[in-house]
Write a protein that binds this DNA or RNA. Structure first.
Lengths: 342, 342
DNA sequence: TTAAATAATGACAACGCTGTCAATCAGGCG
DNA sequence: CGCCTGATTGACAGCGTTGTCATTATTTAA
């Protein structure tokens, strides 16, 4: 029924050890032998038994995805991207949702991954943005790949997959400027998030590139939530700024905030996009489910995750061939929530 | 460092086989012995090696979650619920996202779970609603637990965790009736989904219970999408019905449809809830991120999933003690999108 | 051409657990 | 008190791989 390494060995006329060598892409196997074995593997549709591998070997074929993120669409995409890389490479995936705020969370995680003999971790924010955490993981001789916001890796701790929020934010802001807006509000996400900082930098850059004076009254500190968008937009429109300085556009740090801003505008009888343009960030499903639909920036999370996991696995396999860091720039998606400023 | 069964055996002064018996809750171990072993297990913080278990034993300690669902929040909740049950019981979880429409999907899935030596499957719609599929899985001697819509299991194939959408839909409709509405539109989800059928039944029941005549012009066939909600609401308001018969309330089969209906109402300058009450179903996060926020029905997906997985595991362990089927009724959550009909 | 060096291969013992079956123990009965 | 019965327990052989190290080809250098 299910072929074992023994069957392959017999069929190809070599020892099981040699088959093992071929399966693990070890050197020191003659090309001819390798081909014979591969043919047998194919014929028998042989796949190594993971349990046996884990038991016998010192190597591990498991990686983990440790996350704490309220955005289910993000998590699912990440997970599926990682999963596809794992399947491709014959790895197993351990899913580890957890509470990043919990006391001793680092120890808990180390416990879990030690017990499951995990060889590496894919980390997304907030974990990827905690150098101390990463160091502690690395100290356990566990490989790490981080997905984070920025253009270049902030340090040499691990390979990174960078998401260039700054450039994307600059592009969005430029889009608003191109539409004629000059008074552009900015509602930030949590200040602790790199993504917020990067998006803010992109916003500032776009202003500068267009010689638009920066006005700190147009900046609202917030967090990544609908509620925060509601409050931020209210402040921006009603409180903080005089009527003549009132923004004609708002760049929200993500779609959820933008949806909140939309909500607030509705409450105040402000028409979108005629009286106020609103842009989000993330291209989450509900950016298409607001009225009007949100202009936003799209990032290919599944592919990012697939990349990160592949990178991690090649680290584990010590195939240093692959380039160590890649970068993605989210793409502007123009929809109905932004419009020309009259 | 990591304790093995041998360490436990030595410490408690019994053979490793006896330790194994205790770990597997087998009978034929004297109470005193059992306690000695358990003490040693605790002291050494011993956890059996899963790889070795899988290799040596005929039993499997892996279950799988096979899904195809565009609703990430649903999937994440399910997954986390299943995961928590697995951790509790020392099981591993294999995540298997897939395309339920693909040709030969059943064979693909069987391949996957055979190779991973999966002992059981947690199934959600659409898979849980395909008796033929379930039969083919069961024919492989793989246990199944289904999560599905309804009040009682539709057959004896497997234990089920039922979600009583009918009663919940009746409650929502009753809520609308209590607010004074009598012309209540219904926008269906995909007709192939049990949940749609059940929610429709609940709607009809509520009408009947209140002696409100059923008007088929108020029923729109649709699917579970924002787009469908937009179109459905448009039809309901503008096309299908004369002005005097125009609905004053709409029950949408889920929140996404309701959000679409909200959107359409905006387009047509209809005020919510003054001129039109709209209710959704699911309590998805964006039901709190529309304007106004949606009245909906909430179901504890994480707990449902935890239950289902526990049930599955006890099936696998042949602990027939547990009750075979449980039922959950989603709870009405009143928010701003429904209001009194003047 | 031959010895030495190197590459390729194989034999065999783990890995940590469970299944089988034999051995031991406790208690009941004649 | 000895024997029988069933409940407990243990010895031992795998499970399907990989690591180690010995063995056998093959190549290189002299």
């Amino acid at each position: 029924m299910k072929a074992t390494i023994n069957d392959v060995a017999k069929l190809s006329g070599v020892s099981i050890k040699t088959v093992s060598r071929v399966m693990n892409k070890e050197p020191s196997v003659r090309q001819l032998t390798r081909e014979k074995v591969q043919a047998a593997v194919k014929e028998l549709n042989y796949q190594p038994n993971l349990a046996a591998r884990n038991l016998a070997g010192t190597k591990s074929f498991t990686i983990a995805y440790v996350y704490d993120n309220p955005n289910a669409y993000y998590v699912i995409d990440m997970q599926e991207g990682i999963l596809s890389a794992c399947r491709q490479q014959g790895f197993e995936l351990l899913i580890n949702p957890c509470d990043s705020q919990k006391e001793n969370i680092t120890e808990d995680i180390i416990d879990t991954i030690k017990h499951a003999r995990v060889a590496g971790l894919v980390l997304t924010p907030p974990f990827s943005e905690r150098p101390e955490f990463v160091k502690q993981i690395l100290a356990q001789d566990i490989k790490v790949v981080r997905i984070m916001s920025g253009d270049v890796a902030p340090d040499e701790l691990s390979p990174c997959v960078m998401v260039n929020d700054r450039d994307a934010a600059q592009t969005i802001t430029q889009h608003l400027i191109d539409l004629g807006h000059t008074k552009i509000g900015f509602i930030a996400g949590g200040a602790a998030h790199m993504s917020t900082i990067e998006r803010y930098k992109g916003y500032r850059r776009a202003l500068k590139a267009n010689n638009i004076a920066f006005n700190h009254n147009l900046i609202i500190e917030g967090e990544y939530s609908f509620e925060s968008g509601v409050n931020g937009a209210k402040k921006l429109i009603a409180e903080k700024v005089t009527t003549e300085n009132r923004p004609t556009a708002i760049f929200s740090c993500n779609d959820e905030i933008a949806a909140g801003a939309l909500f607030a505008a509705r409450l105040m009888n402000i028409n979108i996009p005629e009286q106020l343009a609103i842009a989000g960030f993330e291209n989450s499903p509900f950016s298409r489910q607001t009225w009007p639909k949100l202009t936003t920036a799209d990032q290919p999370n599944k592919q990012i995750a697939h990349d990160a996991a592949s990178l991690l696995i090649s680290q584990i396999r010590k195939q240093k061939g692959k380039s160590e860091t890649s970068q993605y720039v989210p793409q502007l998606m123009v929809r109905d929530s932004t419009g020309r400023h009259s």
